[in-house]
C-alpha cells in the first residue's frame, strides 16, 4: 500500500502558510517552524459581485 498524503504530512516537519491572525505565524516562527504569513484581504476588495464572478472564473 502506498503511503497516503496525510501520512506523508505527519512524517515530515510541517511547513505552514498562515492566512489570517498574524499571532499564529509569529508563534510558529518562534518555534522554528517554516511559516509564510499572508497579508490577507477580502478578495476583490470585498465587492460581493466581483468576488462571485472571480470564484466562478477561478484563479
Amino acid at each position: 500500500m502506498s503511503e497516503t498524503k496525510v501520512n506523508q504530512f505527519l512524517k515530515t516537519p510541517v511547513k505552514v502558510v498562515n492566512i489570517g491572525l498574524e499571532g499564529f505565524a509569529k508563534e510558529l516562527e518562534q518555534q522554528g517552524v517554516t511559516v509564510v504569513q499572508v497579508d490577507w484581504a477580502p478578495p476583490a476588495g470585498g465587492d460581493p459581485k466581483l468576488a462571485d464572478l472571480l470564484s466562478k472564473l477561478g484563479t
Binding site: 504530512f9 515530515t12 510541517v14 511547513k15 505552514v16 502558510v17 498562515n18 492566512i19 489570517g20 491572525l21 499564529f24 505565524a25 510558529l28 517554516t34 509564510v36 499572508v38 490577507w40
Partner: peptide, 16 residues
C-alpha cells in the same frame, strides 16, 4: 504568492 516563496508548504492555517 505564498507558495512561490515556499513551494513545499503543506498546511494552510486559516483564521480569516
Amino acid at each position: 504568492a505564498a507558495l512561490k516563496l515556499e513551494p513545499d508548504a503543506d498546511l494552510a492555517l486559516i483564521s480569516v
